[in-house]
């Protein structure tokens, strides 16, 4: 989430980040989303339709991930963690449900 050092950008604020200056973009990194990916996306859409989840909540909870998870998890794994965190926080489900 927020970086303790105001001069240092937050983890997700990647624009111009020198850490990736020498990392090539891989145009061939183009595999279609997996069944897992599509299902996470679809669950997210259902919850949005039902008024239980917004894009801002999605982003806030992805940006709150620790750097290790932010760069270590796949894209839709991060979405899943965000959706789950919001559902628990809102009391839609409980931690016991997903233990």
């Amino acid at each position: 989430m927020d970086s303790p050092d105001p001069d240092r950008p937050a983890t997700h604020d990647l624009g111009g980040n020198p850490r990736f200056r020498c990392t090539p973009v891989e145009p061939d990194d183009d595999a279609p989303p997996s069944d897992f990916d599509k299902r996470v996306d679809a669950v997210r859409s259902v919850l949005r339709e039902k008024g239980l989840f917004t894009v801002d909540e999605m982003r806030f909870n992805i940006e709150a991930l620790h750097e290790t998870e932010y760069f270590g998890l796949t894209y839709y794994e991060k979405w899943l963690r965000s959706v789950t965190a919001v559902m628990v926080r809102k009391g839609v489900i409980t931690w016991e449900d997903i233990k």
Binding site: L14, G15, F20, R21, V25, E26, P27, D30, K38, D41
Partner: peptide, 18 residues
Amino acid sequence: GYPPHWYKSAAYRARAVR
């Protein structure tokens, strides 16, 4: 539709603006 993987990559996001 679904964005390609490279669009979501750290390298693209960091370098496209630089």
